[in-house]
Design a protein around this nucleic acid. Structure first.
Length: 483
RNA sequence: GCUCCCAUCGUCUAGUGGUUAGGACAUCAGGUUUUCAUCCUGGCAACAGGGGUUCGAUUCCCCUUGGGAGCACCA
Protein backbone atom coordinates (compact mmCIF):
# COMPACT_ATOMS: atom_id res chain seq x y z
CA UNK A 1 0.00 0.00 0.00
CA UNK A 2 1.20 3.47 -0.81
CA UNK A 3 1.31 5.86 2.11
CA UNK A 4 -0.94 8.84 1.36
CA UNK A 5 0.93 12.08 1.04
CA UNK A 6 0.68 13.88 4.36
CA UNK A 7 -0.92 17.27 4.16
CA UNK A 8 0.62 20.01 6.25
CA UNK A 9 -1.24 20.44 9.50
CA UNK A 10 -3.47 23.50 9.62
CA UNK A 11 -5.59 24.22 12.66
CA UNK A 12 -7.67 27.18 13.62
CA UNK A 13 -9.01 28.99 16.63
CA UNK A 14 -12.34 30.47 15.63
CA UNK A 15 -13.92 32.55 18.36
CA UNK A 16 -17.00 34.64 17.88
CA UNK A 17 -16.49 38.19 19.12
CA UNK A 18 -19.62 38.18 21.25
CA UNK A 19 -17.76 38.20 24.54
CA UNK A 20 -14.27 38.40 25.87
CA UNK A 21 -11.88 35.47 25.67
CA UNK A 22 -12.59 33.15 28.56
CA UNK A 23 -10.52 30.37 30.07
CA UNK A 24 -12.12 27.64 28.01
CA UNK A 25 -11.44 29.52 24.81
CA UNK A 26 -7.89 30.22 25.86
CA UNK A 27 -7.29 26.54 26.48
CA UNK A 28 -8.77 25.64 23.10
CA UNK A 29 -6.43 28.15 21.51
CA UNK A 30 -3.49 26.76 23.47
CA UNK A 31 -4.15 23.15 22.46
CA UNK A 32 -4.58 24.17 18.83
CA UNK A 33 -1.41 26.19 18.96
CA UNK A 34 0.56 23.36 20.56
CA UNK A 35 -0.77 20.90 18.02
CA UNK A 36 0.26 23.18 15.17
CA UNK A 37 3.72 23.83 16.59
CA UNK A 38 4.57 20.22 17.25
CA UNK A 39 3.57 19.27 13.72
CA UNK A 40 5.31 22.21 12.10
CA UNK A 41 1.88 23.31 10.99
CA UNK A 42 -0.02 26.55 10.85
CA UNK A 43 -2.20 28.09 13.51
CA UNK A 44 -4.93 30.28 12.10
CA UNK A 45 -7.08 32.85 13.85
CA UNK A 46 -10.51 33.30 12.33
CA UNK A 47 -13.14 35.64 13.67
CA UNK A 48 -16.65 34.21 13.43
CA UNK A 49 -18.70 37.36 13.38
CA UNK A 50 -21.69 36.21 11.34
CA UNK A 51 -24.00 37.31 14.11
CA UNK A 52 -23.87 41.03 13.47
CA UNK A 53 -26.26 41.75 16.33
CA UNK A 54 -24.04 40.32 19.01
CA UNK A 55 -20.58 40.79 17.56
CA UNK A 56 -18.53 43.72 18.69
CA UNK A 57 -15.10 44.90 17.62
CA UNK A 58 -14.14 45.47 21.24
CA UNK A 59 -14.43 41.75 21.93
CA UNK A 60 -12.37 40.98 18.86
CA UNK A 61 -9.69 43.25 20.22
CA UNK A 62 -9.82 41.70 23.65
CA UNK A 63 -9.51 38.20 22.17
CA UNK A 64 -6.46 39.27 20.22
CA UNK A 65 -5.01 40.96 23.28
CA UNK A 66 -5.55 37.84 25.36
CA UNK A 67 -3.88 35.53 22.86
CA UNK A 68 -0.95 37.87 22.56
CA UNK A 69 -0.59 38.02 26.31
CA UNK A 70 -0.25 34.24 26.40
CA UNK A 71 2.11 34.46 23.41
CA UNK A 72 -0.05 32.19 21.30
CA UNK A 73 0.78 33.92 18.06
CA UNK A 74 -0.94 32.96 14.84
CA UNK A 75 0.40 32.43 11.34
CA UNK A 76 -2.66 33.79 9.58
CA UNK A 77 -5.38 36.03 10.91
CA UNK A 78 -7.47 39.15 10.44
CA UNK A 79 -4.69 41.50 11.53
CA UNK A 80 -1.83 39.92 9.58
CA UNK A 81 -3.61 38.38 6.63
CA UNK A 82 -2.53 35.20 4.87
CA UNK A 83 -3.12 33.21 1.72
CA UNK A 84 -6.64 32.16 2.60
CA UNK A 85 -8.16 35.41 3.77
CA UNK A 86 -10.08 37.35 4.64
CA UNK A 87 -10.15 35.95 8.16
CA UNK A 88 -13.33 37.56 9.35
CA UNK A 89 -16.51 35.86 8.31
CA UNK A 90 -18.31 39.14 7.79
CA UNK A 91 -15.87 39.78 4.93
CA UNK A 92 -16.43 36.42 3.28
CA UNK A 93 -20.09 36.72 2.34
CA UNK A 94 -19.45 36.25 -1.40
CA UNK A 95 -17.83 32.90 -0.72
CA UNK A 96 -20.74 31.65 1.36
CA UNK A 97 -23.26 32.89 -1.19
CA UNK A 98 -21.56 30.88 -3.91
CA UNK A 99 -21.88 27.66 -1.93
CA UNK A 100 -25.38 28.47 -0.78
CA UNK A 101 -26.48 28.86 -4.41
CA UNK A 102 -24.75 25.64 -5.31
CA UNK A 103 -26.65 23.76 -2.65
CA UNK A 104 -29.95 25.27 -3.70
CA UNK A 105 -29.28 24.58 -7.39
CA UNK A 106 -28.50 20.98 -6.59
CA UNK A 107 -31.67 20.81 -4.50
CA UNK A 108 -29.69 19.98 -1.42
CA UNK A 109 -31.05 23.07 0.28
CA UNK A 110 -34.33 24.93 0.01
CA UNK A 111 -36.18 28.01 1.12
CA UNK A 112 -38.41 27.60 4.13
CA UNK A 113 -41.30 29.98 4.70
CA UNK A 114 -42.52 28.65 8.03
CA UNK A 115 -43.29 31.30 10.61
CA UNK A 116 -41.75 31.30 14.04
CA UNK A 117 -45.16 30.58 15.52
CA UNK A 118 -45.62 27.50 13.36
CA UNK A 119 -42.18 26.27 14.25
CA UNK A 120 -42.76 26.77 17.93
CA UNK A 121 -46.04 24.87 17.75
CA UNK A 122 -44.29 21.99 15.95
CA UNK A 123 -41.63 21.98 18.58
CA UNK A 124 -44.09 21.77 21.43
CA UNK A 125 -46.00 19.02 19.70
CA UNK A 126 -42.88 16.91 19.29
CA UNK A 127 -41.77 17.55 22.82
CA UNK A 128 -45.11 16.47 24.20
CA UNK A 129 -44.79 13.22 22.25
CA UNK A 130 -41.46 12.60 23.93
CA UNK A 131 -39.52 13.18 20.74
CA UNK A 132 -36.45 15.28 20.13
CA UNK A 133 -37.65 18.50 18.56
CA UNK A 134 -36.67 18.83 14.91
CA UNK A 135 -38.01 20.49 11.79
CA UNK A 136 -40.57 18.27 10.08
CA UNK A 137 -39.82 19.39 6.53
CA UNK A 138 -43.02 21.22 5.68
CA UNK A 139 -41.38 23.44 3.06
CA UNK A 140 -39.11 20.75 1.67
CA UNK A 141 -41.15 20.10 -1.46
CA UNK A 142 -42.45 23.53 -2.35
CA UNK A 143 -40.75 23.54 -5.72
CA UNK A 144 -38.68 26.07 -7.58
CA UNK A 145 -41.48 27.94 -9.26
CA UNK A 146 -43.53 28.61 -6.19
CA UNK A 147 -40.44 29.43 -4.18
CA UNK A 148 -39.48 32.10 -6.73
CA UNK A 149 -42.96 33.51 -6.62
CA UNK A 150 -43.15 33.73 -2.85
CA UNK A 151 -39.66 35.17 -2.62
CA UNK A 152 -40.58 37.83 -5.18
CA UNK A 153 -43.64 38.72 -3.13
CA UNK A 154 -41.25 39.47 -0.31
CA UNK A 155 -42.32 36.65 1.93
CA UNK A 156 -39.73 36.09 4.65
CA UNK A 157 -37.77 32.89 4.34
CA UNK A 158 -34.68 31.08 5.54
CA UNK A 159 -32.48 28.52 3.81
CA UNK A 160 -32.57 24.98 5.09
CA UNK A 161 -30.31 22.05 4.37
CA UNK A 162 -31.95 18.78 3.32
CA UNK A 163 -30.53 16.54 5.97
CA UNK A 164 -30.18 13.03 4.57
CA UNK A 165 -31.22 10.10 6.74
CA UNK A 166 -27.92 8.42 7.16
CA UNK A 167 -25.71 7.14 9.89
CA UNK A 168 -22.70 9.37 10.53
CA UNK A 169 -19.54 8.02 11.98
CA UNK A 170 -16.36 9.86 12.73
CA UNK A 171 -13.21 9.21 14.62
CA UNK A 172 -12.43 11.68 17.36
CA UNK A 173 -8.74 11.98 18.19
CA UNK A 174 -9.55 11.95 21.88
CA UNK A 175 -12.76 9.96 22.13
CA UNK A 176 -12.44 7.41 19.39
CA UNK A 177 -15.38 6.35 17.25
CA UNK A 178 -18.57 8.39 17.57
CA UNK A 179 -21.77 7.43 15.81
CA UNK A 180 -24.84 9.58 15.29
CA UNK A 181 -28.01 8.93 13.36
CA UNK A 182 -28.79 11.98 11.22
CA UNK A 183 -32.46 11.01 11.44
CA UNK A 184 -32.79 12.99 14.65
CA UNK A 185 -31.18 16.16 13.31
CA UNK A 186 -33.82 17.47 10.95
CA UNK A 187 -33.40 20.03 8.20
CA UNK A 188 -31.05 22.66 9.51
CA UNK A 189 -31.31 26.36 8.91
CA UNK A 190 -27.96 27.16 7.33
CA UNK A 191 -28.60 30.79 6.39
CA UNK A 192 -31.10 33.53 6.98
CA UNK A 193 -30.63 34.49 3.35
CA UNK A 194 -27.90 34.35 0.72
CA UNK A 195 -25.96 37.09 2.47
CA UNK A 196 -26.32 35.91 6.04
CA UNK A 197 -25.09 32.40 6.66
CA UNK A 198 -25.25 30.82 10.07
CA UNK A 199 -22.29 29.63 12.09
CA UNK A 200 -22.70 25.97 11.18
CA UNK A 201 -22.54 26.73 7.47
CA UNK A 202 -19.96 29.50 7.42
CA UNK A 203 -17.61 27.47 9.58
CA UNK A 204 -17.88 24.43 7.36
CA UNK A 205 -17.09 26.47 4.26
CA UNK A 206 -14.19 28.27 5.90
CA UNK A 207 -12.59 25.12 7.24
CA UNK A 208 -12.61 23.77 3.71
CA UNK A 209 -11.51 26.96 1.98
CA UNK A 210 -8.77 27.54 4.53
CA UNK A 211 -7.57 23.96 4.14
CA UNK A 212 -8.00 23.15 7.80
CA UNK A 213 -6.86 19.61 8.58
CA UNK A 214 -7.81 19.27 12.26
CA UNK A 215 -10.60 20.85 14.23
CA UNK A 216 -9.79 21.01 17.92
CA UNK A 217 -12.57 22.56 19.97
CA UNK A 218 -14.62 22.19 23.12
CA UNK A 219 -16.87 19.26 23.81
CA UNK A 220 -19.85 21.59 23.67
CA UNK A 221 -19.39 21.49 19.90
CA UNK A 222 -19.68 17.73 19.72
CA UNK A 223 -23.32 17.82 18.56
CA UNK A 224 -22.33 20.20 15.76
CA UNK A 225 -19.79 17.87 14.25
CA UNK A 226 -22.21 15.45 12.57
CA UNK A 227 -24.04 18.42 11.09
CA UNK A 228 -20.85 19.79 9.63
CA UNK A 229 -19.87 16.41 8.29
CA UNK A 230 -23.24 16.21 6.55
CA UNK A 231 -22.62 19.57 4.93
CA UNK A 232 -19.12 18.56 3.93
CA UNK A 233 -20.46 15.46 2.25
CA UNK A 234 -23.16 17.41 0.43
CA UNK A 235 -20.58 19.86 -0.88
CA UNK A 236 -18.05 17.19 -1.75
CA UNK A 237 -15.46 18.42 0.72
CA UNK A 238 -12.68 16.25 2.02
CA UNK A 239 -12.81 14.95 5.57
CA UNK A 240 -11.36 16.78 8.51
CA UNK A 241 -10.08 15.21 11.70
CA UNK A 242 -11.75 16.20 14.94
CA UNK A 243 -10.71 16.39 18.57
CA UNK A 244 -13.23 17.46 21.18
CA UNK A 245 -11.72 18.77 24.36
CA UNK A 246 -13.33 18.13 27.74
CA UNK A 247 -15.12 21.08 29.24
CA UNK A 248 -13.73 23.24 31.99
CA UNK A 249 -16.22 23.01 34.83
CA UNK A 250 -17.28 25.19 37.74
CA UNK A 251 -16.88 23.70 41.23
CA UNK A 252 -20.42 22.31 40.99
CA UNK A 253 -19.36 20.45 37.84
CA UNK A 254 -21.52 22.48 35.50
CA UNK A 255 -20.07 24.27 32.49
CA UNK A 256 -18.13 27.22 33.79
CA UNK A 257 -19.89 30.50 33.43
CA UNK A 258 -19.86 33.99 34.77
CA UNK A 259 -22.25 32.98 37.50
CA UNK A 260 -19.44 31.35 39.40
CA UNK A 261 -16.33 33.37 38.90
CA UNK A 262 -14.40 35.68 36.74
CA UNK A 263 -13.86 33.65 33.63
CA UNK A 264 -12.49 36.29 31.32
CA UNK A 265 -8.84 35.67 30.60
CA UNK A 266 -7.87 39.31 30.95
CA UNK A 267 -9.46 39.41 34.40
CA UNK A 268 -6.86 36.90 35.47
CA UNK A 269 -4.20 39.14 34.01
CA UNK A 270 -5.60 42.08 35.92
CA UNK A 271 -5.54 40.14 39.16
CA UNK A 272 -1.85 39.53 38.72
CA UNK A 273 -1.60 36.05 37.35
CA UNK A 274 1.38 35.61 35.05
CA UNK A 275 0.90 34.44 31.48
CA UNK A 276 3.27 31.54 32.18
CA UNK A 277 1.06 30.43 35.05
CA UNK A 278 -2.09 30.50 32.97
CA UNK A 279 -0.49 28.54 30.15
CA UNK A 280 0.87 25.92 32.52
CA UNK A 281 -2.41 25.66 34.39
CA UNK A 282 -4.58 25.51 31.28
CA UNK A 283 -2.43 22.78 29.81
CA UNK A 284 -3.06 20.70 32.91
CA UNK A 285 -6.81 21.02 32.64
CA UNK A 286 -7.45 17.84 30.74
CA UNK A 287 -3.88 16.88 30.00
CA UNK A 288 -1.05 15.43 32.04
CA UNK A 289 2.47 14.30 31.21
CA UNK A 290 3.65 10.71 31.56
CA UNK A 291 5.84 11.55 34.51
CA UNK A 292 4.70 13.80 37.31
CA UNK A 293 6.42 16.93 36.15
CA UNK A 294 4.53 20.01 37.31
CA UNK A 295 6.08 22.94 35.53
CA UNK A 296 5.98 23.48 31.80
CA UNK A 297 6.91 26.41 29.64
CA UNK A 298 5.31 26.87 26.25
CA UNK A 299 8.37 25.35 24.61
CA UNK A 300 8.39 22.36 26.91
CA UNK A 301 4.72 21.84 26.20
CA UNK A 302 5.43 21.72 22.47
CA UNK A 303 7.83 18.89 23.20
CA UNK A 304 5.66 16.89 25.54
CA UNK A 305 2.03 17.70 24.82
CA UNK A 306 0.08 14.90 23.20
CA UNK A 307 -3.49 15.34 22.05
CA UNK A 308 -4.08 11.61 22.41
CA UNK A 309 -3.39 11.84 26.12
CA UNK A 310 -6.08 14.43 26.67
CA UNK A 311 -8.67 13.43 29.24
CA UNK A 312 -12.22 12.62 28.17
CA UNK A 313 -14.04 13.89 31.22
CA UNK A 314 -14.55 17.49 32.26
CA UNK A 315 -12.07 19.20 34.57
CA UNK A 316 -13.11 21.32 37.51
CA UNK A 317 -11.36 24.65 37.66
CA UNK A 318 -9.48 24.90 40.94
CA UNK A 319 -8.43 28.41 41.98
CA UNK A 320 -6.28 27.22 44.89
CA UNK A 321 -4.04 25.28 42.58
CA UNK A 322 -3.87 28.20 40.17
CA UNK A 323 -2.79 30.48 43.03
CA UNK A 324 -0.19 28.02 44.19
CA UNK A 325 1.20 27.72 40.69
CA UNK A 326 1.29 31.48 40.29
CA UNK A 327 3.15 31.82 43.59
CA UNK A 328 5.71 29.33 42.31
CA UNK A 329 6.22 31.27 39.12
CA UNK A 330 6.46 34.59 40.90
CA UNK A 331 9.17 33.45 43.27
CA UNK A 332 11.22 31.95 40.48
CA UNK A 333 11.33 34.97 38.23
CA UNK A 334 14.17 37.41 38.82
CA UNK A 335 13.08 40.50 40.68
CA UNK A 336 14.05 42.95 37.98
CA UNK A 337 11.81 41.51 35.30
CA UNK A 338 9.11 40.88 37.87
CA UNK A 339 9.24 44.58 38.75
CA UNK A 340 8.57 45.31 35.10
CA UNK A 341 5.40 43.21 35.16
CA UNK A 342 4.40 44.73 38.47
CA UNK A 343 4.23 48.28 37.25
CA UNK A 344 0.51 48.22 36.48
CA UNK A 345 -0.25 47.06 39.98
CA UNK A 346 1.45 49.75 42.06
CA UNK A 347 1.25 53.53 42.58
CA UNK A 348 3.45 55.70 40.38
CA UNK A 349 5.32 56.93 43.43
CA UNK A 350 6.63 53.44 44.09
CA UNK A 351 7.75 52.99 40.54
CA UNK A 352 9.99 56.02 40.85
CA UNK A 353 11.89 54.47 43.76
CA UNK A 354 13.20 51.70 41.61
CA UNK A 355 15.96 50.44 43.90
CA UNK A 356 13.66 50.18 46.85
CA UNK A 357 10.99 48.56 44.71
CA UNK A 358 13.30 45.82 43.59
CA UNK A 359 14.56 45.21 47.10
CA UNK A 360 11.03 45.07 48.44
CA UNK A 361 9.97 42.77 45.67
CA UNK A 362 12.90 40.51 46.31
CA UNK A 363 11.75 40.16 49.90
CA UNK A 364 8.02 39.88 49.25
CA UNK A 365 8.34 37.57 46.27
CA UNK A 366 7.89 34.48 48.42
CA UNK A 367 4.76 35.72 50.08
CA UNK A 368 2.67 37.04 47.21
CA UNK A 369 0.44 34.75 45.23
CA UNK A 370 -0.68 37.32 42.71
CA UNK A 371 0.92 40.55 41.58
CA UNK A 372 -1.89 42.60 43.08
CA UNK A 373 -1.09 41.19 46.54
CA UNK A 374 2.10 43.24 46.52
CA UNK A 375 0.49 46.61 46.94
CA UNK A 376 -1.07 45.76 50.26
CA UNK A 377 1.78 43.67 51.64
CA UNK A 378 4.64 45.96 50.71
CA UNK A 379 3.20 49.42 51.26
CA UNK A 380 5.28 49.97 54.41
CA UNK A 381 8.52 49.88 52.46
CA UNK A 382 7.51 53.10 50.77
CA UNK A 383 5.71 54.79 53.59
CA UNK A 384 5.56 53.93 57.26
CA UNK A 385 1.89 53.45 58.13
CA UNK A 386 0.42 55.11 61.18
CA UNK A 387 0.12 52.41 63.79
CA UNK A 388 -0.92 52.02 67.40
CA UNK A 389 1.92 52.15 69.92
CA UNK A 390 0.53 49.03 71.60
CA UNK A 391 1.55 46.98 68.63
CA UNK A 392 5.21 47.46 69.56
CA UNK A 393 4.64 45.51 72.73
CA UNK A 394 5.88 41.92 72.88
CA UNK A 395 3.93 39.96 75.49
CA UNK A 396 3.99 41.76 78.87
CA UNK A 397 6.70 44.31 78.16
CA UNK A 398 6.43 47.82 79.57
CA UNK A 399 6.96 50.90 77.41
CA UNK A 400 10.19 51.61 79.25
CA UNK A 401 11.57 48.19 78.44
CA UNK A 402 10.69 48.57 74.79
CA UNK A 403 12.30 52.00 74.61
CA UNK A 404 15.39 50.64 76.30
CA UNK A 405 15.66 47.78 73.82
CA UNK A 406 15.11 50.05 70.85
CA UNK A 407 17.87 52.33 72.10
CA UNK A 408 20.22 49.38 72.36
CA UNK A 409 19.38 48.67 68.77
CA UNK A 410 20.18 52.22 67.78
CA UNK A 411 23.61 51.89 69.42
CA UNK A 412 24.19 48.70 67.51
CA UNK A 413 23.12 50.22 64.22
CA UNK A 414 25.22 53.32 64.71
CA UNK A 415 28.34 51.17 64.66
CA UNK A 416 27.79 50.41 60.99
CA UNK A 417 28.47 52.91 58.26
CA UNK A 418 25.74 53.72 55.78
CA UNK A 419 27.59 52.18 52.85
CA UNK A 420 28.17 48.90 54.66
CA UNK A 421 24.65 48.66 55.96
CA UNK A 422 23.50 45.15 55.08
CA UNK A 423 22.44 41.90 56.69
CA UNK A 424 25.99 40.57 56.81
CA UNK A 425 27.19 43.49 58.89
CA UNK A 426 24.41 43.70 61.46
CA UNK A 427 22.42 40.48 61.63
CA UNK A 428 24.87 38.45 63.70
CA UNK A 429 25.45 41.21 66.24
CA UNK A 430 21.78 41.96 66.71
CA UNK A 431 21.03 38.27 67.10
CA UNK A 432 23.75 38.04 69.76
CA UNK A 433 22.17 40.95 71.56
CA UNK A 434 18.80 39.25 71.25
CA UNK A 435 20.16 36.15 73.00
CA UNK A 436 20.88 38.18 76.13
CA UNK A 437 17.65 40.18 76.35
CA UNK A 438 15.27 37.79 74.59
CA UNK A 439 14.54 37.34 70.92
CA UNK A 440 10.92 38.34 71.07
CA UNK A 441 11.68 41.24 73.40
CA UNK A 442 14.16 42.71 70.95
CA UNK A 443 13.05 41.58 67.52
CA UNK A 444 9.30 42.06 67.74
CA UNK A 445 9.53 45.77 68.67
CA UNK A 446 12.18 46.21 66.00
CA UNK A 447 10.15 44.56 63.29
CA UNK A 448 6.92 46.35 64.13
CA UNK A 449 8.76 49.67 64.38
CA UNK A 450 10.13 49.13 60.90
CA UNK A 451 6.98 47.85 59.26
CA UNK A 452 4.17 49.34 61.29
CA UNK A 453 2.46 45.99 60.84
CA UNK A 454 1.72 42.99 62.99
CA UNK A 455 2.70 40.67 60.16
CA UNK A 456 5.59 41.35 57.82
CA UNK A 457 8.89 39.94 56.61
CA UNK A 458 11.74 39.74 59.11
CA UNK A 459 13.44 42.88 60.47
CA UNK A 460 16.85 42.27 58.91
CA UNK A 461 15.49 42.13 55.41
CA UNK A 462 13.50 45.29 55.99
CA UNK A 463 16.51 47.11 57.46
CA UNK A 464 18.65 46.27 54.48
CA UNK A 465 15.99 47.44 52.05
CA UNK A 466 15.31 50.64 53.96
CA UNK A 467 18.92 51.62 54.58
CA UNK A 468 20.51 52.97 57.72
CA UNK A 469 18.94 56.40 57.74
CA UNK A 470 15.36 55.30 57.32
CA UNK A 471 15.85 52.42 59.75
CA UNK A 472 16.98 54.81 62.46
CA UNK A 473 14.19 57.23 61.66
CA UNK A 474 11.55 54.54 62.09
CA UNK A 475 13.00 53.32 65.35
CA UNK A 476 12.94 56.87 66.65
CA UNK A 477 9.33 57.23 65.53
CA UNK A 478 8.54 54.19 67.66
CA UNK A 479 10.36 55.59 70.66
CA UNK A 480 8.43 58.81 70.33
CA UNK A 481 5.14 56.93 70.19
CA UNK A 482 6.01 55.12 73.40
CA UNK A 483 7.21 58.15 75.32
C1' G B 1 -38.14 14.40 27.23
C1' C B 2 -34.61 13.11 23.16
C1' U B 3 -29.37 12.62 21.23
C1' C B 4 -24.36 12.33 22.25
C1' C B 5 -20.28 12.23 25.72
C1' C B 6 -18.11 10.89 30.39
C1' A B 7 -16.82 8.10 35.43
C1' U B 8 -9.31 6.66 40.02
C1' C B 9 -8.48 10.56 46.74
C1' G B 10 -12.49 16.92 48.06
C1' U B 11 -9.84 18.91 43.20
C1' C B 12 -6.22 18.19 38.85
C1' U B 13 -4.46 13.54 37.57
C1' A B 14 -0.49 8.92 36.90
C1' G B 15 -1.06 3.94 36.33
C1' U B 16 -1.27 -1.70 35.12
C1' G B 17 -4.84 -8.08 33.25
C1' G B 18 -1.27 -9.67 39.14
C1' U B 19 1.09 -2.48 42.24
C1' U B 20 1.69 -1.39 49.60
C1' A B 21 -3.03 2.09 43.39
C1' G B 22 1.79 7.01 42.59
C1' G B 23 2.23 12.58 42.35
C1' A B 24 0.41 17.71 42.92
C1' C B 25 -3.25 21.29 45.18
C1' A B 26 -6.29 21.52 49.42
C1' U B 27 -6.61 19.64 54.42
C1' C B 28 -4.75 17.74 59.27
C1' A B 29 -0.52 16.90 62.83
C1' G B 30 4.45 17.97 64.16
C1' G B 31 9.17 20.87 63.37
C1' U B 32 11.97 25.56 61.98
C1' U B 33 10.68 30.87 62.93
C1' U B 34 10.18 37.50 66.88
C1' U B 35 5.09 37.84 63.53
C1' C B 36 2.98 36.41 58.79
C1' A B 37 4.34 33.73 54.69
C1' U B 38 7.89 30.26 53.18
C1' C B 39 10.41 25.78 54.22
C1' C B 40 11.01 20.53 56.28
C1' U B 41 8.72 15.82 58.15
C1' G B 42 4.55 12.91 58.57
C1' G B 43 -0.88 11.66 58.30
C1' C B 44 -5.95 11.34 56.24
C1' A B 45 -8.00 10.41 51.58
C1' A B 46 -9.91 7.16 45.49
C1' C B 47 -10.61 2.78 41.43
C1' A B 48 -19.57 4.55 41.64
C1' G B 49 -22.62 -0.27 41.87
C1' G B 50 -23.96 -5.03 39.64
C1' G B 51 -23.07 -8.73 36.16
C1' G B 52 -19.84 -11.17 32.86
C1' U B 53 -14.67 -12.59 30.23
C1' U B 54 -10.32 -14.49 32.90
C1' C B 55 -6.43 -18.50 37.13
C1' G B 56 -6.81 -13.25 38.36
C1' A B 57 -9.94 -7.42 37.10
C1' U B 58 -9.28 -0.67 39.00
C1' U B 59 -7.75 -2.08 33.93
C1' C B 60 -11.62 -5.59 28.68
C1' C B 61 -17.32 -6.13 27.60
C1' C B 62 -22.57 -5.30 29.12
C1' C B 63 -26.21 -3.17 32.34
C1' U B 64 -27.54 0.21 36.24
C1' U B 65 -26.61 4.60 38.67
C1' G B 66 -24.53 9.26 38.60
C1' G B 67 -22.60 13.60 36.06
C1' G B 68 -22.15 16.80 31.77
C1' A B 69 -23.19 18.93 27.09
C1' G B 70 -26.41 19.76 23.10
C1' C B 71 -31.35 19.95 21.21
C1' A B 72 -32.36 28.39 17.84
C1' C B 73 -33.65 32.25 12.01
C1' C B 74 -26.65 32.19 18.80
C1' A B 75 -21.93 30.58 18.25
Amino acid sequence: MIEPLKKPVRVRFAPSPTGSLHLGGARTALFNWLFAKQHNGQFILRIEDTDIERSDIKYEESIIQGLRWLELFWDEGPDIGGNFGPYKQSERLDIYEKYLKKLIDEEKAYYCFCSKEELEADRQAMLSQGLAPKYGGRCRHIGQEETEKRLKKGESAVIRFKTPSIEIEFNDLIRGKITVNAEIIGDLVIAKNLRSPLFIFAGTIDDYEMKITHIIRGEDHLPNTPKQILLQKALGFNEIKYAHLPLILAPDRSKMSKRYMETSLLDFKNQGYLAETIVNFLAFLGWHPKDNKEFFSLNELIQEFDIKRVQKSGAVFNVEKLEWLNAQYIRNIDSVSLAEQLKDFIPTKWRDKKDLLIKALHIEKERIKKLNDFKELADFFFELPDYDANMLKWKEMTNEQIIKNLKLLIDEIDKISETEFNKNTFEADILTLAETIGRGELLWPLRTALSGKSASPGPFDIMEALGKKETLRRINVAIKKLS
